[in-house]
Design a protein around this nucleic acid. Structure first.
Lengths: 198, 198
DNA sequence: ATCAATCTAGATCGATCGATCTAGAAGAAG
DNA sequence: CTTCTTCTAGATCGATCGATCTAGATTGAT
């Protein structure tokens, strides 16, 4: 019964991408193993062959995988203009466009999952932490390239990410892009202010 | 039909506060009805007497209740100084102190729950939206009082809340107050910049 | 004192949870 | 071919999920 999918990719890879998609949309506890298997077109046997530690191990790997998608989104914003302030502001715009495409159902790949397992799954929490730090580094690198001193860049990158994450939460709950549009203008302003004060 | 009855029984209130505490810490799906009943010292009978629609109805009410705690926290920050920029920055500091007290386990009363039910429970999503808007209004009011024009204040309040929410996420995942401390300095800078440009 | 409304108690329901297990298909190596 | 390893299939497990139900306790009005 394997002939259904034409040129089917790795079962393992399908499990990871399916899990990443479900975690992004509805978090950890709402995502049942059965739903993952259905979405991935796999079975229990395969899952526990590749991930002996079960759902938790699979989720941790899926978060790291999903983090790459979000990084690509950030990169698109950060490289969208030679002007640093514009590039930073565009991160919020690009994010808003991406969220709208799923009608605000698919969000940051780690936020929903991270918030519900804090203090209860070190494995997943660490994967979340690594993802956030990677995004932060990505932003910081662009800030440095745009002329922000290294230490100020690390801090500013942190706040940019904070603002993006928070504005995403507010936008998704409200079902409109207001918070992200506002964040765009304020991030532009903040970036300019930091550069002047540095 | 009993609106705001004057002599409210203990049990109902205990259910709401217990639910608020659990939702804040671990979100919606991870919080079982049984855990709520244990924490509240109540039984199924009581729960479904007061909340015929069950867990979802109880959660929506608990979110509105928990929102008041967070509002009090914000108020403490906003009134902590006559200087507007300092007051805004102190919101992040006060939040960091509060989170640390629970060792980063108890966060924003709506974030975890909201993120996992977006698009799946209009009842809870609306309660979340109302809470976020109430906090935003609280901040905006202080901004106006501090000299920010009304329209600019509404927008700035939105970004302040976004940044606080996002920095809280990052701080809780990392288990330290770095993101919130950084947010404090940048929110001060941003508030000053907005006032100058207005 | 009586009675109806209000509130509490908890056994029990079917559904679903994540996990485990045995069985066998598919490929590679000899 | 045989044999060993890798991967898939899905039945089944005990636990727990949210919800429902009947029955009993408490209360307030008359």
């Amino acid at each position: 019964m394997t002939a259904a999918a034409p040129a089917e990719p790795d079962t393992r890879a399908r499990l990871v991408t399916a899990t990443a998609a479900l975690l992004q949309r509805q978090g950890y506890e709402s995502t049942s193993v059965k739903a993952i298997l259905t979405e991935a077109g796999a079975t229990y046997g395969s899952l526990y062959h590749f991930f002996p530690e079960g759902k938790e191990q699979l989720a941790a790997e899926a978060l790291r995988f999903g983090a790459e998608d979000f990084a690509a989104l950030l990169r698109r914003g950060l490289e969208s203009s030679d002007d640093l302030d514009t590039a930073v502001a565009n991160c919020a715009i690009v994010l808003a466009e991406s969220l709208r495409e799923s009608e605000w159902l698919d969000g940051c790949p780690v936020a929903a999952t991270a918030l519900e397992i804090i203090g209860r799954s070190p494995l997943i929490q660490q994967a979340s932490d690594e993802s956030l730090n990677a995004w932060r580094a990505l932003i910081a690198e662009r800030l440095v390239r745009g002329g922000v001193p290294a230490h100020a860049a690390a801090d500013l990158a942190c706040t940019i990410l904070s603002t993006l994450e928070g504005a995403e939460l507010i936008s998704r709950v409200a079902g409109d892009d207001e918070a992200l549009r506002i964040a765009a203008t304020h991030l532009r302003l903040l970036t300019a202010a930091v550069r002047q004060s540095a």
